[in-house]
């Protein structure tokens, strides 16, 4: 990409950044609204974390420009995400060792 094209792309992205900001605000309001409605806790978790993942994806893709970033960056973050998943999976495995002695997500 030439320098002129790069600057033009930055110019085009300015309005999009504002739209992403609005989208993040709407998503956080939905997240709060749903959390205040009393229903199944497991469903709360799925929806709440699902919205958080969507918000995080928007921030990474557009604010951090991961969408058009180099392969090296993609692989660095994929590696980090992979080990993060391993970390959580190991935690859950430790829990399931004692699955009979605790009840998951009861409040």
């Amino acid at each position: 990409m030439s320098e002129d094209q790069d600057l033009q792309q930055t110019r085009n992205e300015v309005k999009m950044h504002l739209r992403i900001g609005v989208a993040l605000t709407v998503l956080i309001l939905i997240s709060i609204g749903i959390a205040l409605i009393p229903f199944n806790t497991a469903l709360h978790l799925v929806i709440g974390l699902g919205i958080a993942v969507v918000m995080a994806t928007l921030v990474m893709a557009f604010f951090m420009h991961l969408k058009g970033e180099k392969k090296f960056v993609h692989w660095t973050m994929i590696t980090a995400a992979f080990f993060f998943v391993i970390l959580i999976a190991l935690t859950l495995l430790a829990y399931f060792d004692y699955a009979g002695s605790a009840t998951i997500f009861k409040f």
Binding site: T76, M77, I88, T91, Y95, Y98, A102, I104, F107
Partner: peptide, 30 residues
């Protein structure tokens, strides 16, 4: 980017600890 990858693991460890403590808590107490 390398630093941020290490930060993912730093906060990942804390989130992992949170999940472990929360699902291990006795029902009705968390």
């Amino acid at each position: 980017w390398l630093f941020l990858a290490s930060e993912v693991m730093l906060f990942g460890g804390l989130f992992s600890a949170y999940i472990f403590l929360r699902i291990g808590a006795e029902p009705g107490l968390w």
